[in-house]
């Protein structure tokens, strides 16, 4: 928090040009973090899809399904066994797991992403506060300049 304090003090002493630069970089940071947040959320959605797929297979009594050969070509297939899944655990490794274990893996990943998303949101709130204070300082500067002009 100390660094933010010094930053606030610095701001009022800077030239408007420099404040604009800072605002630009803060804007970039905010959009970068927003993008990361969206990426996290779409990753979570994919993981949730995995869990619902497993649950779907578990619930249904039928063993027929359509196997995608390409994105637009499907062949009818049959499930031989329902309780073994190959789970992608990252860097190209896949592990055979039971339905419950597989769900645990995905749930853990979702929870981890939740944590990260929370951290990111905190950062975004902070950055937005900085952005607001930059804008306020900038507005004051402009007003000062205009006042100085009319007094001349």
């Amino acid at each position: 928090m100390a660094s933010e304090q010094t930053r606030k003090i610095d701001l009022t002493q800077l030239q408007p040009q420099q404040i604009l630069e800072i605002r630009k970089s803060t804007e970039q940071e905010i959009s970068h973090f927003t993008q990361s947040l969206q990426a996290l959320q779409s990753a979570q959605a994919k993981l949730r899809d995995c869990i619902t797929s497993i649950e779907g297979v578990e619930k249904s009594n039928k063993t027929e399904l359509l196997v995608p050969m390409t994105s637009s070509l499907y062949l009818p297939g049959k499930l031989v066994q329902k309780d073994e899944y190959l789970v992608d655990i990252g860097t190209g490794y896949y592990v055979g797991k039971s339905a419950n274990d597989a769900k645990v893996v995905y749930q853990k990943k979702i929870d981890k992403l939740d944590e990260d998303a929370k951290k990111l949101k905190d950062i975004l709130v902070q950055k937005n506060e900085i952005m607001n204070s930059i804008n306020i300082v900038l507005r004051n500067k402009v007003m000062e300049l205009e006042k100085a002009k009319t007094e001349e």
Partner: peptide, 30 residues
């Protein structure tokens, strides 16, 4: 980070676990 996640996952497994590695389009048993 990705490798750490994989390593964490491995520490929960044992020698009976079926492990495959994706090499190109093929899953190789490991």
């Amino acid at each position: 980070q990705e490798n750490k996640i994989v390593s964490d996952e491995f520490s929960l497994l044992n020698e009976e676990s079926k492990i495959f590695k994706l090499i190109g389009p093929v899953l190789m048993p490991q």
